[in-house]
Write a protein that binds this DNA or RNA. Structure first.
Lengths: 206, 206
DNA sequence: CCAGTATTTGACCAGTCGGTCAAAGGAAGG
DNA sequence: CCTTCCTTTGACCGACTGGTCAAATACTGG
């Protein structure tokens, strides 16, 4: 039995665990936890179902493994927003990083969206803990920038929500957007649009 | 057998069909189609599973009934945007209606989001047809307003996407938002925030 | 009240679900 | 070659899935 908790040791273990997680990301992100089946994941990974369960204790364990690093990765762009940088540039860079994540990791975005949509049964603690603390911290930074007149005075929480909404929408609603844009790649015009939007939004009134 | 295609006739039929659709909306919107079970729906409706299938031919049929009117309802706020009205007021009124739908019908929003997230397997035709045509129509209106200098020049498609993203986010990511805002009702500050955002975004540059 | 219809349900079915297990295959060192 | 350990799998399990059906129950007009 491979070490479930520790790090995979042999090359074959590492390779198969990666195969499984890659396949599981595909399946979980498009069907949600309940809607996904081990047979789908096994088939997508090119392994047999018992072989899957040789590397992971259960369906839950595969999902948990995927989720464990997800929130951290997802919040990294916000974490990097520097309180000592130039406010507008910092926020725009944050938006840009976040949009880039939607472009490069749409499956991860949908995995996250699925979890939240379904009431975040396996992540609520992390939202109320890790996520809330980071947001509270950055809200204080934003408030300071607003008080200093460096950016427009807005509700800082909803400002952050608007970044999430606008950027993640391109990953989560990809199918809908592409149905409307026909051939054009959404990400051709999206970066310019969201940058313009936040520039106008953040420009101080005075 | 009650008439599946036509309108329910007796009071009891109407009542039970409504009970089922109400319960199904709850279950489908939180678990997606595959993740939902007839037993869950039956239990939530207070009926037995065979009784469910007395009123609807199948699980698919219940879901289809829910989806059939959904896209129309969902697009109504955009449809009402009047090409002959005052541009800024028309767009802001559209945003306001859309946000109000997120507040009043979050389950419908999540049902829709689930369908799109999962690749819109049962709705892709409607997206490429009905939805695309309406959006194309309104894009022309927006372009006319932009050419006339009545609103800022922006990518009209992405302008519409931004309305969807910002308003639906409050319904679809409700759990996450409430985890951050603690006790405060997100919809206290949201209307003001999104109105401010779109006012700033749409104000002509000159 | 009764006949006929509309409604409800317990029992059941075949297929699928997550998961187990013993046995078979493979690689590596001696 | 053999032994040992890691890996893979076919066969199988009980629980649950969507769905069926005949029989029972409620409801209606006459």
């Amino acid at each position: 039995m491979p070490d479930g908790t520790g790090k995979a040791r042999t090359r074959i273990q590492r390779r198969n665990r990666d195969l499984i997680l890659e396949a599981a990301l595909d399946v979980f992100s498009t069907h949600g936890f309940r809607g996904a089946t081990l047979d789908q994941i096994a088939s997508a990974a090119g392994l047999s179902k018992p072989n899957l369960l040789y590397y992971f204790a259960s369906k839950e364990a595969i999902h948990a493994d995927l989720m464990s690093g997800l929130l951290d990765t997802w919040l990294d762009p916000l974490r990097e927003m520097d309180a000592d940088g130039e406010p507008i540039a910092e926020i725009l860079a944050y938006v840009d990083r976040k949009l880039e994540m939607s472009r490069l990791y749409p499956r991860e975005s949908r995995l996250f969206a699925n979890e939240i949509l379904q009431g975040a049964p396996r992540m609520l603690d992390n939202l109320q803990g890790e996520l809330k603390h980071l947001v509270d911290d950055k809200v204080r930074v934003l408030l300071r920038w607003m008080d200093a007149g460096q950016i427009a005075k807005l509700d800082p929480h909803h400002l952050i929500f608007s970044v999430w909404a606008l950027t993640q929408h391109y990953a989560d609603f990809d199918v809908q957007i592409r149905a409307i844009l026909d051939d054009a790649d959404p990400f051709d015009a999206a970066p310019n649009f969201v940058e313009t939007l936040f520039r106008k939004l953040l420009r101080p009134d005075s």
